[in-house]
Amino acid sequence: MLAFSIRRLLQAILVMLVVALISFTLFRFVGDPVNQMVGVETTPEQREALRERLGLNDPIMTQFGRFIVKAAQFDFGTSYQFRQPVSDLIGKRLPATLELSLVSAIFALLVGIPMGVYTGLHRDSVLSKLFLSISLIGISLPTFFIGILLIFLFSVTLQWLPSFGRGDTVAIGWWTTGLLTVSGLKALVLPSITLGLFQMTLIMRLVRSEMLEVIRTDYIKFARARGLRQRSINFRHALKNTLVPVITITGLQVGSIIAFAIITETVFQWPGMGLLFLQSVQNVDIPIMAAYLMLIAFLFVVINLIVDLLYFVVDPRLRADRAAL
């Protein structure tokens, strides 16, 4: 267990280093950082002085080392377009994105797992076929179009829910939350359904195929032979054993939820990191791009690490295997 954890940790660090190298290359070589900071009337001498002061004349390896040290403290310099520290800009928008991602992940799990269990147990019922058709459509509809459809239906036509923004937020320290106000909660509904729908269909299909596999196993037959109640077999014995892949996929999906939030945030003008990143791509704001890339990579790596370690908690067989090794 310890050796495994250390090996995974080393892999994670390697991935982070590679991503840092990409970010650094972006930062250093795509567009001249000095050009972005000074005006047109700056003399070559002043430019050279700035260059020296920023350390852009040092050897590349020294610069990369400095970049990593700064990145570890989440210091990515100043945004070209906003003239504010990147860390402040992202920090201000982080809560919005994380809240949206969390709510949509919960939505995907709470709806997806029961639908998957149902379709797995009742393969040929009409409702199962309906669920499966919906899931196929859910996978084929692009995220942005789902958002537009929801806006058209619930905001424009029925006028039930807001179509943009976060509503009223409450500040708890530096964290702003929309979960505590009515308008904040209302504003969350459409974006989180948009963002979670794809994940929901994915989880549903996964749970379904796992259930189909598990109910064929001997221990389920045995449980049935013991005369256990169907409900207890389904949920205590079958569902439990389908959860390992569900945890993996959910873990991996949390990362892509945060990335797909870019689309949802654009459709709903949600003031999160994704919208900031998109603006920075459009305005070639390299510091924000680099910082966002590092942040996403970090989240991915941490989540993957947690997922790998969760295996041991969830699946006792793994623990035994590792102990035997």
Binding site: V15, V18, V19, L26, V30, G31, G255, S256, A259, F260, I262, I263, F277, L278, S280, V281, Q282, V284, I286, M289, L293, I296, A297, F300, V301, N304
Partner: peptide, 23 residues
């Protein structure tokens, strides 16, 4: 390939586009 799998396609495409704009 593994490092790249870590990132969703949409993010990679956005980054490429950002770099292309800069270049």
């Amino acid at each position: 390939a593994e490092v790249q799998l870590t990132f969703p396609a949409i993010l990679i495409a956005l980054l490429v586009d950002g770099v292309a704009r800069a270049l």
